[in-house]
Simulated scan of single mutants.
Amino acid sequence: MPFIIPSFGQSSVHENGFSSFQWKGQEFEYNRGNIVLLKLIDFSSNGLTGNIPKSFSTMRGLRSLNLSRNSLTGYIIPDIGKMEVLDSLDLSHNQLSSKIPISLAGIHTLGYLDLSNNSLSGKIPTGTQLQSFNASYYAGNDGLCGDPLPKCPGDILRPSTTNSKGNMNEKDDVFSFMQEVAISMGFGFIFGFWGVIGTFIWKKSWRIAFFNLLDAVGDWFYVRIVVFVSKWRRD
């Protein structure tokens, strides 16, 4: 498997496209054109210091990067998301600070991530697969917060906008429905009541006929009651 020594130590670039590096008293040389073949870098527990080289973001074919248990400082390179096929990333037990770059959440192939025991801070990017990793892989970063770690102070104080909006919309719908029912009943009463009363007021013949009908109905009920009472007494 191809292996490369990135620029942690002293290095020089030659005009012929080769780069040489001083590593543990020995000089290594490689052709930069072969960098696309690189699949694995493991420099764990080597006492490395300084920042993570930005050139790592150019290693588009890299699948595993392990820089754990060193003394690296600075921040996680913002362009780390360009390493699109990275499957494993271990930066634990260093002195890295600042926030987790949002571009890291764009590496959809990432199956293993360990950022524990650094000095990272801020909120873990929400709505990404970064929240699916175990909380232990973020432990030891006192400034980190958000799922899967405890909520950030701002999230605890801020009410859930989704729930509040949902409740407000539901209340508005109920209130609107009740308004429509009240208006409909009001118009129904007005048109029904005044439609009948108005007709009686303006049409004298209809008014006389209506009261005659009421008298006839009253007489019918009276006769029926008298007949029923008479039969009940005879029985």
Rank of each mutant, 00 (worst) to 15 (best):
G50F: 11
S57A: 12
M59L: 15
R60Y: 01
R60V: 01
R63K: 10
L65W: 10
N66I: 04
S68Y: 05
R69Y: 14
R69E: 04
N70G: 03
S71C: 09
I76G: 01
I77Q: 07
D79H: 10
G81I: 04
K82I: 05
D87K: 06
D87T: 06
S88F: 14
L91R: 10
L91W: 03
L91D: 14
L91I: 15
H93S: 07
H93L: 05
N94G: 12
Q95R: 11
Q95K: 09
S98T: 10
S98W: 04
I100M: 14
I102F: 06
I102A: 09
L104R: 07
G106C: 02
H108E: 04
T109V: 05
Y112R: 14
D114L: 15
S116N: 12
S116M: 07
L120M: 08
S121C: 09
I124S: 01
T126W: 08
G127W: 14
Q129T: 04
L130P: 01
L130V: 06
L130I: 12
Q131H: 07
F133E: 06
N134M: 13
A139T: 04
A139I: 05
N141T: 09
N141F: 13
D142Y: 13
P148N: 15
P150L: 08
P153Q: 15
P153I: 15
D155C: 11
I156Q: 13
R158D: 01
R158A: 05
R158E: 06
P159D: 07
S160D: 07
T162E: 12
S164P: 02
S164L: 11
N167Q: 05
M168V: 06
E170F: 09
V174C: 00
F175G: 00
M178S: 07
M178W: 04
M178V: 06
Q179I: 08
E180W: 15
V181H: 04
V181W: 13
A182W: 03
A182M: 01
I183R: 10
S184M: 15
